[in-house]
Amino acid sequence: MDINLISRAVAELGECLRVEDNYLATAESCTGGLLASTLTDTPGSSEWFAGSVVAYSNTVKTNLLGVSPTVLEEHGAVSEPVVMAMAQGVLKAMGAHVSVAISGVAGPGGGTPDKPVGTVWMAWAWPSGSRARLYNFSGTRAEIKGQAVMAAVNGLLSVTR
């Protein structure tokens, strides 16, 4: 992860949110709080960052974010329906204006033929809509997590500008 690049992107995101008096919330699985940490490394982030849920287990996805156990069973944690539900759940739970949810396989193990290491689903939500995207990153566990954080921030910039 290029620290200067991500710092500039987060500063721009923060300014977009601050100007509109909007708050951001995150729901992270495979990134384990790295996105929240990256956001809060920015001075003044308390003006636009509401908080984060690190929903590493399916129990947390269900109990805190409202992801249906049936959806988890049918699609798996790394899927579009799950990240869409996570994004909506954290948006509501935090009373935020925009959210992002991330779930994926950071590796080095855990991959399957259908969902190899580097498979990451993200969803962004706001009161009037949402969208999701599938990514296929490569590299080490740390590199995959870093790429996911950058993609999440870029996605947030695209929905807040």
Rank of each mutant, 00 (worst) to 15 (best):
R8M: 05
K92N: 10
A9H: 05
F137P: 01
A25D: 01
A125M: 12
K61W: 01
T112Q: 07
L24Y: 14
G14V: 00
P108Y: 00
S128F: 06
V120D: 12
Q88M: 08
M1W: 10
A132V: 09
N154C: 09
M1G: 15
D21W: 03
M1K: 11
A142G: 06
L35I: 08
G66Q: 09
S37W: 02
W48A: 06
G32I: 02
N58E: 10
A101E: 06
I6Y: 00
G51L: 08
T112M: 05
M150I: 02
A142I: 12
F49R: 00
P69I: 02
V100G: 05
A50L: 04
T119P: 14
A96H: 00
M84H: 09
A151I: 11
S128C: 06
S158G: 02
G107Q: 03
V19N: 13
R133V: 15
S99K: 03
A87T: 08
Y56S: 05
L65R: 02
G107M: 04
C16L: 14
V53W: 11
K115N: 14
V117D: 03
V105P: 00
E20D: 15
A148L: 12
F137H: 10
R18M: 08
T42D: 11
G110V: 10
R131D: 12
T31W: 12
A25T: 07
G44T: 12
A151Q: 07
G109Y: 14
A50Q: 11
E47Q: 15
A93M: 04
G51C: 10
L91K: 04
L35P: 06
